[in-house]
Design a protein around this nucleic acid. Structure first.
Length: 471
RNA sequence: GUCCCCAUCGUCUAGUUGGUCCAGGACGUUGGCCUCUCACGCCGAAAACAGGGGUUCGAGUCCCCUUGGGGACGCCA
């Protein structure tokens, strides 16, 4: 039997990391068994659904590389089908019209709470026979009265719930539109979903959905409920915990490979292995190895993984992602080194593409001001002769490459009886505006001769002015 | 409140059918080495089986209770 999994987000917000992980697990499970992965947009709540959210979800999926074989399906386009089945259940007596008002149901709930009972609809309309033409009504599913619903969750093991705990849930609102628990069931049935992989906040819905599925005479899928992702404060991940939108991670300079790797490892493991290529994930992923406990999202580890991928991915591919960031800032990359070269020399000192971009800005545009601390430390009067000497030396270089520049730095240090650091740091501040950059010879090579000379001249002027003021 | 689920270092986790696990790896933290800056890299350290009862020759591993955490209880999904 072909495995068919699905990801079924509701478009009421962006794609967050919890949803992305669920999608990833579903995708992996389908891919590894040569099955199909379906994307379904659950937009039956027309009040809160929006096209922007749909777009954000689709963009997030694309950025992560989670492609789907079918869909996106939209539930709002399947209303006829839901209506047809609701009518069928009504005719078979498996569902009934309920004329209770919202107020009535609300006070019932309040009474039950007061009695310390689990609030649930008591089925008072089940046997209603009097004529009620013109009265507003909803349709409720007639849940079995007794017995127990048991299922074997692929990650949790056996879970059972007494039917007495379940009430007759509403499957069609008073305006006739179907509700979540009904549409999921119909869609999973119609789309032949074999494995329902979703957040464990749906565990409680599962027995209800199984009952409906049985009423419809459908085959039951297998269920796998994955634990929630918690924020650093131990509460369920939400908008308050910083960047939870998948696309926000792109903004923040993460590589999709890194996020994917972080997510797959959050709640799932394969021995002690930490790094997984997409191919490895597909080969090694197993629902059975998903942890049962909720896990906490930890940005530090994500950063480490991001750095790892920055270091190990193909520089050409990283450069492609880096370009996105330069473009976002409207920076012309034509005037500086090729991004592939930039990646190769900067990646060891950057954990994100944003850092890489910011640390490399000086290679593409002049900086407005020097870093104040760097100036205080490295632009003292005694460095004036160093800068002047280097200006002359650099000026005579015909072949402007790192090797030659490195030699000049060494020779200068020797000639002036200084340590290399005393030579390199002033130049670094002169050309980069700050005390941090890649090795000075490489930095100078990438900057180019003209700009190096200009910036050293500017630095000399600055040092002169500064030290005049002080003395 | 009722029901469902969960519980190994700060975090993510490994932990074969209970037996060198005085609990292993990774992130982070931290000591040192390397070094033209920042980093990378290398070597080392601290750090956990929530508590209590059982079962057993023997329990992180099985059972029960307590505690703690999460989720559900919508004409939301």
């Amino acid at each position: 039997m072909t495995v068919i999994t699905r990801f079924a987000p509701s478009p009421t917000g962006y794609l967050h990391v919890g949803g992305a992980r669920t999608a990833l697990y579903s995708w992996l499970h389908a891919r590894q068994s040569n099955g199909q992965f379906v994307l379904r947009i659950e937009d039956t709540d027309r009040e809160r659904s929006s096209q922007e959210s749909v777009d954000a979800i689709l963009d997030g999926m694309t950025w992560l590389g989670l492609d789907y074989d079918k869909g996106p399906y939209y539930q709002t386009q399947r209303f006829d089908r839901y209506a047809e089945l609701i009518q069928l259940l009504l005719e078979q007596g498996k569902a009934y019209r309920c004329y209770c008002t919202r107020e009535e149901v609300e006070s019932l709930r309040a009474e039950q709470m007061a009695r310390k009972e689990k609030p649930r609809y008591d089925g008072r309309c089940r046997h209603r026979t009097e004529q009620t033409e013109g009265l507003e009504s909803v349709v409720r599913f007639r849940n079995p009265d007794d017995g127990v619903v048991v299922f074997d969750d692929l990650v949790r093991g056996t879970i059972s719930v007494q039917n007495q705990e379940l009430d007759d849930l509403i499957i069609a609102r008073s305006d006739g539109t179907p509700t979540y628990n009904f549409t999921v069931v119909v869609d999973d049935m119609d789309m032949g979903i074999t494995h329902v992989i979703r957040g464990d906040d749906h565990i409680n819905n599962t027995p209800r959905q199984m009952n409906i599925l049985r009423a419809l005479g459908a085959e039951l899928p297998q269920y796998a409920h994955v634990p929630m992702i918690l924020g650093s404060d131990g509460a369920r991940l939400s908008k308050r915990h910083g960047a939870v939108s998948v696309l926000q991670y792109r903004e923040d300079g993460y590589l999709p490979d890194a996020l994917l790797n972080y997510l797959v490892r959050l709640g799932w493991s394969h021995g002690d292995q930490e790094v997984f290529s997409t191919q490895e994930m597909i080969a090694l992923f197993d629902l059975k190895d998903i942890n049962r406990a909720a896990s906490t999202f930890n940005t530090e580890k994500l950063l480490w993984l991001n750095h790892h991928y920055l270091m190990n991915d193909d520089p050409v591919s990283v450069a492609g992602h880096l370009k996105w960031h330069f473009d976002q800032r409207g920076i012309n990359i034509e005037v500086g080194p090729a991004l592939v070269d930039l990646v190769r020399i900067q990646r060891e000192r950057c954990k994100t593409l944003v850092e890489m971009t910011e640390m490399s800005l000086f290679l593409y545009q002049d900086f407005d001001a020097y870093d104040e601390k760097a100036v205080k430390k490295h632009f003292k009067a005694k460095c004036l002769p160093v800068l002047q000497y280097l200006l002359e030396q650099f000026n005579t270089v015909s072949l402007w490459n790192a090797d030659n520049l490195h030699q000049i730095v060494i020779d200068t240090a020797q000639a002036m009886d200084k340590k290399i650091g005393e030579i390199a740091q002033p130049i670094r501040v002169a050309v980069a505006g700050k005390a941090v950059s890649p090795p000075i010879d490489i930095t100078l090579e990438l900057l180019g001769k003209d700009r190096t000379l200009q910036r050293i001249e500017r630095a000399i002027r600055t040092v002169e002015e500064r030290n005049v003021e002080i003395s």
